[in-house]
């Protein structure tokens, strides 16, 4: 049977401790400054292309929509944004939508029909 490497063992437990420390620090920051908390959102279009946006949780989605439309050079009113199959509207915030870091929003073009 293989002997446990004492060096490896100790280093791994140190890493585990470090990870715990970092997690605690992070929690503390969140608790003291909830307003400044920002997350990264991924906006994915129908071709699969992703655009990243860093936003504060209190920012209205309107800003993300306008910025995305500006980048793509399209009218914001012709875009539709979805989260898990539900439309999201411009007055909602990341916090209201319970968005988390790295969450994905889908974007689609307006559809029309008549003839």
């Amino acid at each position: 049977m293989k002997k446990t490497n004492p060096l490896y063992h100790s280093s791994s437990s140190t890493l585990a401790n470090q990870a715990r420390t970092m997690a605690t620090v992070k929690t503390d920051t969140t608790a003291t400054e909830p307003k400044s908390e920002s997350i990264t959102l991924r906006v994915k279009d129908q071709t699969g292309e992703e655009t990243m946006f860093k936003v504060k949780k209190t920012t209205k989605m309107e800003k993300v929509f306008a910025s995305y439309a500006g980048r793509k050079g399209v009218n914001v009113d012709s875009l539709r944004f979805l989260l898990d199959g539900q439309r999201i509207e411009k007055h909602q915030t990341s916090a209201e939508l319970e968005l988390e870091d790295e969450d994905q929003i889908d974007v689609m073009l307006e559809q029309l029909g008549g003839c």
Binding site: K44, Q46, L82, D84, G85, Q86, R87, M108, Q111
Partner: peptide, 19 residues
């Protein structure tokens, strides 16, 4: 919009299951 999301954005089974 959900129909087109299902058609174009849901590429794997996990996406479809969630929807």
């Amino acid at each position: 919009v959900v129909v087109s999301c299902m058609l174009i954005q849901c590429t794997d089974e996990e996406d479809l299951k969630e929807l």
